[in-house]
Computed example of a mutant assay.
Amino acid sequence: MATITSKISAPAGLFGRTGSSASGERRVVRKRRLGPGKAIPFGIGLGPAILIAVWVIGSAAGTIDPETLPAPWTVAQTAGDLIADGRLQSNLLTSLQRAVIGLVLGVSIGLVLALISGLSRIGEAVVDGPVQIKRSIPTLALIPLFIVWFGIGEEMKLVVITTSVLIPVYINTHAHLRSVDARHVELAETVGLSRWGFVRRIALPGSLPGFFTGLRLAVTISWLALVVVEQVNATSGIGYLMTQARTYGQIDVIVVGLVIYGLLGLFGDIAVRTIERRALSWRQTLGD
């Protein structure tokens, strides 16, 4: 039996080469992992850097018509002029206030509704239907109704952002609450956990991945909704600045606004991902 066992070796093509030491021990060279590999430092900036490089090269070579898309240096000069006269800072501050307030309200409401619906069948029967109805109705279709209800002031803009943001937070958090492993529920019942103990120790930690996925979507959607509402009779904000530029044919100012929206969305996503990695440090994924 010992002779048969000693002749059995792992296939070289599957585990790599094997070697024998003087004591007859065998060691296996570990093959490279099948995942995407280690994270690239500052890799999230690689894609935007390539886009900017293509923009610079195309503008310098004359491939990109400056009447269609101004050159990067023209846009940078326009941004400097807007900063010098104070217009960019004041409008950016207004947009940030609207987006942050709407985001905080939407995330809070979406999370509360997800907990009510995800932890109670009665709550699900009451809450899930209206949320799914709102999910299927585009935000643009609701703006005329919101204008009638709330006017054209700040209240209407915050309502549009809030109702847009709460949907992804609700959907993803609710889905993860409902997908908690039944064995964990049985274990909680076995050890005698209370309802609140089950929620605090099992349900909430289990729903965190879904919550952060919804939060990342919510950050992006808050800026998308902001672009829409700031072009509805607004008197301040980046969207208002872009609307005025469109009226006067100032394409460079429009591009400045688009770049700012893009950077805010990118940095917002980076911030959420950083918080997510720290909050879910216990979970090993392919992205680690």
Score class of each variant (00 low, 15 high):
63 T>M: 15
63 T>C: 11
64 I>G: 02
64 I>N: 03
65 D>I: 09
65 D>M: 10
66 P>I: 08
66 P>A: 10
67 E>K: 15
68 T>I: 15
68 T>F: 14
69 L>W: 07
69 L>S: 08
70 P>H: 05
70 P>T: 05
70 P>M: 07
71 A>V: 02
73 W>F: 14
73 W>H: 11
73 W>L: 14
73 W>I: 09
73 W>C: 05
74 T>S: 13
74 T>R: 10
75 V>F: 03
75 V>I: 12
76 A>W: 05
76 A>I: 07
76 A>Y: 02
77 Q>C: 08
78 T>H: 09
78 T>S: 12
79 A>Y: 00
79 A>Q: 00
80 G>T: 09
81 D>S: 14
82 L>T: 02
84 A>I: 07
84 A>H: 09
85 D>S: 14
86 G>E: 07
86 G>K: 09
86 G>V: 08
86 G>H: 09
87 R>V: 05
87 R>M: 08
88 L>M: 12
88 L>K: 06
88 L>W: 05
90 S>D: 12
91 N>S: 06
91 N>C: 05
91 N>E: 06
91 N>I: 05
93 L>M: 13
93 L>N: 09
95 S>R: 01
96 L>F: 07
96 L>K: 02
97 Q>K: 10
98 R>N: 00
99 A>D: 00
99 A>R: 00
99 A>N: 02
